[in-house]
Amino acid sequence: MQLKTFDSPADLDQYAAQLFAAALKENPESTLGLATGSTPIGIYEKMIMLYEKGEISFKSATTFNLDEYVGLSPDHEQSYARFMSRHLFSHIDLPAANAHLPKGTVTDLEAECAEYDRMLEERPVDIQLLGLGHNGHIGFNEPDDELQGGTHIVELEPETREANARFFDSIDEVPTRAITMGVGSILKAESILLVVKGADKAEIVKQALRGPITTECPASLLQTHKNVTVLVDREAGRLL
């Protein structure tokens, strides 16, 4: 596991974007694992800038997102499909057919989970971007006595819903369930990039990277992966 600490969010975002650019330059048909939330927005902005400069192209790439809310249509303002369109997809040359997110509005959610896993088996992720939840969740894999390896439906913890309530008019509008890649799916990526920012994440960063490997802190399972790069700002990394 490699750990890099940055003095400014802009420098961190630029470094992360360059890692994705390097993957695309080495293999234009790379499969990119993407994340949502506030953490990756700056990274996506830097990736767009690299694309606009002509340094990278996404036209032969494939993307898989970690998760989506159950019950939100793709055009809902707070769906992750809408998030990705707003912050990345509508600004680059990635073909729409090559961008994959779990579908949270289908009738048969279990079949959707199986289909998502099938697609991931066909196109293994080359580089997977992750954020880190305050309770140690990655994707929407919440702390539990045991974790599911494949894509599955999860009941969101109150802490997670509260953290995401700022994006909705009220916490009552935050969905109670999500469809997410499992930790096993995440760990199949060839390389993993964990990005964490802010003083409020310092304690969970320490637990995830230095604490025991336990399903009570899903991110701690990243310690078992052979190729993980962790990017933190000074505040997030202050306890390491």
Rank of each mutant, 00 (worst) to 15 (best):
M1A: 13
T5A: 02
S8L: 14
S8R: 14
A10Y: 07
L12T: 02
L12I: 03
A22D: 12
K25M: 09
N27L: 00
S30G: 05
T39L: 10
P40L: 11
I43D: 08
K53V: 05
G54Q: 10
I56L: 14
K59M: 08
A61V: 08
F64L: 06
N65F: 13
L66V: 05
D75C: 02
D75F: 03
E77R: 14
E77C: 12
S79R: 03
Y80C: 04
Y80E: 04
R82K: 10
M84D: 08
M84L: 13
S85T: 05
R86S: 07
L88R: 08
L88W: 07
P95C: 13
T105H: 11
D108L: 06
E110I: 03
A111L: 01
E112A: 01
E112Q: 03
A114Q: 08
L129C: 03
G131E: 00
H134I: 13
N141V: 09
P143V: 04
D145F: 01
Q148C: 01
G150F: 07
H152S: 02
I153G: 01
I153M: 06
V154M: 06
E157Y: 05
A163F: 04
N164A: 14
N164G: 15
A165T: 15
F167I: 15
F167V: 15
F167W: 15
V174W: 11
T176F: 15
R177I: 12
G182I: 03
G182A: 03
L193R: 02
A199L: 01
V205L: 08
V205A: 09
K206H: 15
T215I: 10
E216S: 15
C217F: 12
C217A: 11
L221F: 14
H225E: 04
K226T: 11
V228S: 11
V228R: 10
D233T: 06
D233Y: 03
E235P: 02
G237P: 00
G237D: 00
R238P: 00
R238D: 00
